[in-house]
Amino acid sequence: MKVVSRSRDTLTYYSELFQIPEVLLADANPSISKVLPTGIEVHIPGFVTVKESREESTLNDIALRFQLPMDALLLLNQGEKEMVSVPVRIISPLLAIEKPYEYQSFLDDLEILSLHYPFIQVESFGKSVLGKELLEVRVGRGEKVIHYNGSFHANEWITSAVLMKWLNDMLLAVTNDCMLCGVDCLSFYENVTISLVPMVNPDGVDLVLKGESAAEGKLDVVKMNNGNPAFYAWKANIRGVDLNNQYPANWEIEKRRKIPKAPAPRDFPGEVFLSEPEALAMKELAERRNFERVIALHTQGKEFYWGYEGHEPEHSASMAREFEERSGYRAVRYVDSHAGYKDWFIQEFKQPGFTIELGKGINPLPLSHLPGIYEDSVKILMAGLYM
């Protein structure tokens, strides 16, 4: 929602008028001062407007019916109009994520959230093989940066939906100053920056959900898929490289022992490490942001992996216990696997890293599993903020 400032209006006054934390107003309007010039547009996050007929109701009637301060109506309705704009607080999720979560769905949902919660920051940090923007969403203003990602693997696209639902729920909690999983989200907003990359592998996700047309005629994905026109088992990027086997953490071991020796639906680690633009962009993002910890969402197994070759710090163990207790997922310290994003992060930064295997079944997990998956995983996502 936008309003037009009047003489002597301030962000502090708007915070009191709309009961929105002032820090959110400041971040939604970064280019303006606390004392507002007259006649500029100001974003008020967490609100929408509805229209009421001026002929049928007086402003006083509308204020009483919607339980609003009169000045909130006056601010939105400067000048004579037939219809009255009424500010209405958003108190329920804006996104319906129970759908095949292709790249365009992600973009559409991100646009909705950016419009109504303009204090979030969205930044492109690279492009996929087919030129799709790789997008990072940041929420908060703290120096400690905690990173979450999803859809490294194409047929695990449900992880993107989980992260977007969590983002929507967090934004609701922050703007309404309420709790999520017993956690005060506004406190974390001021002390932590959350970095989310909900869809690392957009080309692959679209291939799984839309079929051969997603390759835009630029790659012979059917040939890589052994002649099968159905791509439900595809994990790799559009060039047939497994992005979670692309990192310089004993990559040579994976290269030597993986059965695919050429581009394939899964497991091929590439001819060299970091050959794929998506993998390289994720590496450079971690180096630029200096993440405090990394939580990567995958499917399936209802377990998570938290160590790598003894490089993990001591406090990773207590975090793993907390995740296990909260979610019921099984904590696994070491697995015979290398070259993953979590592996490289732990090795490179000596900070906690986790690969969370959401749900249980056969990939891609059906949408009917999403409510249960989210109920379990949101406890880990929130615990990742304060451990």
Rank of each mutant, 00 (worst) to 15 (best):
G301A: 00
S368H: 05
A72E: 10
G39R: 12
F231N: 01
K2T: 14
A383E: 08
V23L: 08
F345N: 03
V294P: 12
M224A: 01
F47E: 01
I44Q: 11
I146F: 15
E312T: 09
I253Q: 08
V145E: 04
E22G: 07
V23I: 13
L180I: 06
D109L: 05
E287H: 10
H153A: 01
P313H: 07
G217Y: 06
L94M: 11
I253R: 14
P352S: 02
V84I: 15
Q246I: 09
K210W: 13
E52Q: 14
V86D: 07
P202R: 10
E375P: 03
A286G: 10
I356G: 08
G46V: 03
E271P: 07
V335E: 04
P45A: 01
A383D: 05
S85F: 14
P87D: 06
A63T: 00
E292S: 08
Q351L: 04
E276G: 11
A96G: 08
Q121L: 07
S15K: 10
S316L: 02
T49N: 01
W306M: 02
N228Y: 10
A26N: 06
G150C: 06
E284L: 13
V241T: 10
A63Q: 00
E325M: 12
E98G: 00
I91N: 12
I91V: 15
L207H: 13
G310S: 03
P69M: 01
H147P: 05
H298I: 00
S195R: 15
K302M: 06
S128W: 14
D206K: 07
V4L: 12
Y305A: 00
I356L: 10
V145A: 07
W306Y: 14
H369S: 03
D61A: 02
P118F: 09
S92C: 04
D343Y: 08
D343I: 04
I346T: 12
E276K: 15
L75D: 03
M282R: 09
F268W: 14
R141Y: 12
V48N: 11
P313S: 02
M319C: 08
L25V: 07
E56C: 09
N191M: 06
N176L: 03
I32M: 08
L24E: 01
R8F: 15
N250L: 10
I346R: 09
C185G: 04
N168K: 07
K99W: 03
E324L: 05
K210H: 13
P229V: 05
Y189N: 05
L180C: 09
H43W: 11
V200T: 03
L94Q: 09
T193Q: 04
F188P: 08
E254K: 13
A63W: 00
V241I: 12
E322T: 15
W157G: 01
P269Y: 12
A296H: 14
